[in-house]
Amino acid sequence: MNQLFSVIIQFPLFGVLITVAAFYLGQRLYLKSHRHPVLQPVVIGMAVVIGTVIMLQVPYESYYESSYLLHAMLGPATVALAIPLFQNAKRIRTLLLPIFLTVLVGGALTVSMAAGILWILGANLDTMLSMPTKSITTPIAMIVTEQIGGIPALAAMFVLLTGALGAMIGIPLMNRMGIQDQGVKGFTMGLTAHALGTARALEEGEECGAFSALAMSITGVMTALLLPFVVAWLH
């Protein structure tokens, strides 16, 4: 029995196996929950993986090594994000300059505010370095956080919290503010709450969803291109 157990956890693809299984489970539960924003497949998958790893007493390091195959695909998949970006950019081409400027100013605002609050409350440096990517799409957030010396796992968590919260409060809040334009609403959702905000924006309609997807991609790419320079300069 003990031998079988050690054979299983030393299987070179052990990490890949449990991750795919956990993600599959996550997808099933997500669809069953009628796509509840908090029950994202990645959240359930992560929870199942963590539970399994702790139960089997496998150190995180060895899980990570044996699931590296999946982690390595993050790079090419991130490159592929250029494809939806191109599709969305084409249709909203005329507004590119205002979109660009809003992402720049709005993004800088939210990042510096979050950093300011952490600094005032005396948070750890690791936390501060993992926060600036909170409103961009998870894959870009994680690789940028790695680049600037934060903790990618922490960044992923902040991204999920921001997205879930933004998806919940964004549209009702803007309705209260009397914002009626679907494009403006969608744009705000994408800039502040990335993919989860975009999923919510799509429920409002096609135009709202398209603006959100565009804002999400541009915010992600601009953050990735500018943030490392800002952090290097602050160092």
């Binding site: 991750t19 956990a22 993600f23 990645v42 995180y60 699931s67 894959p139 994680m142 968590m157």
Partner: peptide, 11 residues
């Protein structure tokens, strides 16, 4: 999202 799990579990 599947590709994000190995690093996210580092939490």
């Amino acid at each position: 999202p599947l590709f994000l799990i190995p690093a996210s579990a580092g939490i």
